[in-house]
């Protein structure tokens, strides 16, 4: 554990927290918050649509955890970027180009196998991410990560149980789970891109270099996929890019339209 922290968080010791008006660092944190926020929004769509009522509740819990992670970060980001914005300013009032989430989380809800494939990758990524961030030199980030870590371990467990059952279930479920793993793959690499903001966040001892998480995340996913009698497709095809700099895919605009339209129809209102 300690060697990993040293690898991913150089300079953690001399970090002194965030200075107001620090836009690049705020941008890094916004990436973390927006991933959680947008995925919570997508998971919320499952309520009343899951394969079994028990699963409605499970996905609801995961959505609530992710929503909580985003809400833990937004006000802090508002203090760092100097804008003083609150959680709803970030969630409800930003245009598409200002969102910094990866494409993976904004993709439309597919079938249950698609969701479990996405949840497997995303929660494996979040487990590694938050494990590293508990050692962040930024106490607020370390705190959020510590709480999130307990949650995302459960999410990973949930996804793993399902991927194994679908992969090693019936012929149809095997086929559908494999297809879902194939479909999600082009959106995975983006999680591990080292954009400028993450490099700066690492320099200040507060962030973690995304690329440094890749092997461990892939190792976790590969183990589950093997147990599920499935194969991890190789990633030689087109892959998504640009989420961290506000370049999004088609579903994002619709997601925001739905999420924001009431708040934006009533400027200045409280709810």
């Amino acid at each position: 554990m300690s060697t990993m922290r040293n690898e991913s968080l150089p300079g953690a010791a001399e970090n002194t927290g965030a200075a107001p008006g620090d836009k690049p660092y705020a941008g890094y944190l916004l990436g973390l918050a927006d991933d959680a926020m947008v995925y919570a929004q997508r998971l919320g769509e499952w309520m009343t649509n899951a394969p079994q009522i028990e699963e409605d509740m499970a996905l609801g819990n995961i959505a609530l955890d992710l929503l909580g992670q985003a809400r833990g970060l937004y006000p802090y980001i508002g203090s760092i970027d100097g804008s003083g914005r609150g959680e709803d300013d970030y969630a409800m009032q930003r245009d598409e180009r200002d969102w910094r989430n990866v494409h993976l989380v904004e993709q439309e809800r597919g079938d249950f196998a698609d969701e479990m494939a996405r949840l497997l990758w995303f929660s494996a990524y979040q487990v590694e991410l938050h494990t590293a961030l508990t050692g962040s030199g930024d106490d607020v980030v370390a705190g959020v990560a510590g709480k999130a870590l307990k949650e995302v371990r459960y999410h990973l467990d949930h996804a793993s149980l399902w991927v194994v059952r679908l992969g090693d279930g019936t012929e149809e479920s095997h086929r559908r789970m494999q297809a879902a793993l194939d479909r999600v793959l082009p959106y995975v690499a983006e999680l591990f891109d080292d954009d400028e903001a993450s490099v700066l966040a690492v320099d200040r001892g507060a962030g973690v270099l995304p690329s440094s998480l890749h092997d461990r995340v892939e190792g976790r996913v590969a183990a589950v996929v093997a147990q599920a009698t499935l194969t991890l497709p190789d990633g030689s095809r087109w892959r998504s890019r640009g989420g961290r700099s506000g370049i999004h895919s088609r579903p994002m605009g619709y997601l925001l339209a739905e999420m924001q339209h009431i708040a934006r129809s009533h400027p200045g209102a409280t709810w």
Partner: peptide
């Protein structure tokens, strides 16, 4: 799965 569901259904 039963254990997992029990957590979500009975200990929210």
């Amino acid at each position: 799965m039963a254990l997992r569901n029990a957590r979500d259904v009975y200990t929210r």
